[in-house]
Nucleic acid binder design. Structure first.
Lengths: 207, 207
DNA sequence: GGGCCTGTTGGACAGTTGCGCAATTGACTC
DNA sequence: GAGTCAATTGCGCAACTGTCCAACAGGCCC
């Protein structure tokens, strides 16, 4: 296959691993799968990564970081904290639509057994939570939100979202994404002292 | 190995599978692992189960059903709906303490790829939710709770619990079980029209 | 006791896994 | 052009996987 610079090739491997992982699951992704996806030999992968574990950790990290970047970008297009929050909720709903959330389920399950995966998972979960924290803090500053404990409230909103999304992705028919989004918005309204239904109303004008 | 009756042997296989799964993870549990755990040959397992998938599904089902039974029993010792709810929250906290929740994480990750696991996971998740629904409905009936949508409220309480517990089990240090329990109780108070802090107060008198 | 039923064995089977390594290729410098 | 170095190959290795099956063995009935 075409020769690449080390940087490019490393990236190509991670990209290929992610493509396969989204289809087959993180744990079921093999060296040969990744090589076939790239159209190269399998030996090449071990020329760039010490072990398959590292490849999988890098792939998960990239997937999660990409989602985070998309949501961050969507939020930055707004200045108003409440608009930012709406952008967050809309973006997360879209994330679920992709199979990206399945990668999170795989990562959470593997975390306690694969240190590299756990490190990436912790960092990215905290990053998501901090995204909410910053929004809440600026909302408080501007006097449009009230929240005694932004850190705690962010964990609760994020965790409700994760717990409900989990039902959608793992079990399929029990709940749907729209309902999840509405319920999370409702909790956010309660946590941040917003008028009931105000987030949903604002979201409808965005979509 | 010692001859067993079909019922006993089937149970022994499921027990052994569960023991291995708690240590290695559901997906990484192999026929030979289970056989070694029982001290028998590997062929024996296929004499009782059509496939390894079924063994794993049965193991998960048993683990989850056992937890559910413990919580159900704890709740039945109370008559008052609010006491039942407190028993539920206390029991769930204890469940996390075990490694039982890790099995749930494995099951959720595997659900979309293993039909047998998905069926078991859906059934047991719904059973947990219904446990809450029944409690809420009797609380409404007796006039000690108010809740416009018991089904939806139960999903939200359960999902917050799952999402927060996930952080405890997968990531270890970010949150602790006590905090999770307090936060879930707080959401329950909001959802069910209870006085803030009343559940925690009641729980303290139980412990 | 003999025959039968079935739980149980242990290995064969074909497939897959992560990993290592000698050989090859292509791109670069002198 | 010759020489060099690293990216890339493709196969081999040992270990593992789920599944299957002929053989064995222990308990039960006649």
């Amino acid at each position: 296959m075409a020769r690449m610079s080390p940087g490019e090739r490393r990236q190509a491997i991670v990209d290929a691993a992610l493509t396969v992982a989204l289809r087959k699951g993180l744990a079921a992704t093999t060296v040969r799968d990744v090589a076939a996806q790239m159209g190269t030999s399998s030996g090449l992968i071990h020329h760039y990564f010490e072990s398959m574990d590292e490849v999988l950790a890098a792939a998960f990290e990239q997937a999660a970081a990409a989602d985070l970047a998309v949501t961050t970008a969507a939020m930055e297009s707004s200045i108003d904290p409440i608009d930012k929050l709406v952008a967050y909720l809309v973006s997360y709903t879209r994330v679920d639509q992709d199979w990206a959330f399945q990668v999170w389920l795989d990562a959470w399950a593997e975390a306690s057994r694969r240190p590299a995966v756990q490190r990436a998972s912790v960092n990215l979960n905290v990053a998501w939570q901090q995204l909410l924290v910053k929004t809440i803090e600026s909302g408080i500053e501007q006097g449009v939100m009230t929240c005694p404990e932004p850190e705690a409230a962010a964990w609760r909103i994020l965790s409700l979202q994760d717990g409900l999304s989990l039902q959608v992705v793992a079990h399929g028919t029990i709940l749907d994404r729209i309902t999840v989004s509405n319920w999370v918005a409702r909790l956010a309204e309660i946590e941040l002292g917003l008028v009931e239904g105000s987030l949903e109303e604002r979201r409808r004008s965005v979509l």
